[in-house]
């Protein structure tokens, strides 16, 4: 229980530091502060997707419905964070490049991630039988995941890119102010913490629900 209050306090500090402690980046000015929120949110979106896919594999190997439920709610968390990343990205895009949307490589990849999540949930909603839904959704999740690296490889070759360089770029150069980088890492950790909290909350909810259903069956 305590660590949730600590997490709340920590995120408060990170938010304050993002506005007060970190200096604005050269060229971008105050706009650069979005990095402390946009990048961690996108990171959690991808992380949740990865965890969801791993749970799908675990389901196919062990045939326990618990794994599929975990895959599904990780996808739900991932969807929320991916939407947040898309929206914050579009706002940043509007004020730096002039358009909310320009099919820039990063935008394209995140849009595909949204499409995959969308298709995944459409597929789930189309199947009534829980066991069958688990199997088909798991297979689809793995297939979609396999196609993502191809996209990452192909997109930058085709569309011109405007997105600021990733933190770890091929040249292994740090292009960020030390104070900015500190806040950025802190924020990344904080958002991962929020994800862990969501995950924990939902796991407990599912466990209780399963227990409740079990009890009802016996009654």
């Amino acid at each position: 229980m305590l660590w949730k209050y600590l997490l709340g306090f920590y995120m408060l500090l990170v938010t304050a530091a993002a506005f007060l402690y970190a200096p604005p980046a050269l060229g971008l000015g105050e706009l650069s502060r979005i990095i402390f929120f946009h990048v961690p949110v996108a990171w959690v979106g991808c992380l949740a997707y990865l965890v969801s896919m791993l749970n799908s594999i675990a389901f196919l190997r062990k045939q326990k419905l618990e794994y599929d439920r975990r895959a599904a709610f990780n996808a739900e968390i991932g969807l929320v964070f991916t939407i947040l990343a898309t929206v914050t990205g579009a706002i940043f895009s509007r004020y730096t490049w002039g358009e909310y949307w320009s099919w820039e490589p990063r935008q394209t990849s995140i849009f595909v991630l949204l499409l995959i999540y969308g298709a995944y949930f459409v597929l789930r909603s189309a199947i009534e039988d829980e066991e069958k839904r688990a199997r088909l959704a798991s297979v689809y999740s793995i297939l979609a995941f396999i196609s993502v690296p191809f996209l990452v490889f192909i997109i930058p070759r085709i569309y011109s890119h405007l997105h600021p360089n990733p933190i770890i770029n091929p040249g292994k150069q740090m292009e960020m102010d030390a104070r900015m980088f500190r806040v950025f890492l802190a924020s990344l950790a904080g958002f991962t913490g929020i994800y862990a909290w969501f995950h924990n909350l939902h796991s407990r909810y599912l466990k209780l629900k399963a227990k409740f259903e079990e009890a009802e069956k016996h009654a």
Partner: peptide, 26 residues
């Protein structure tokens, strides 16, 4: 997958596009 999911054939383009996108773009 679509056939097992109650034969809803409108589902196929929805499921295919994200998987096929790298291929189609190329």
């Amino acid at each position: 997958i679509v056939a097992k999911a109650g034969s809803k054939s409108t589902l196929l383009p929805v499921l295919s596009l994200p998987v096929l996108l790298p291929l189609l773009v190329t």
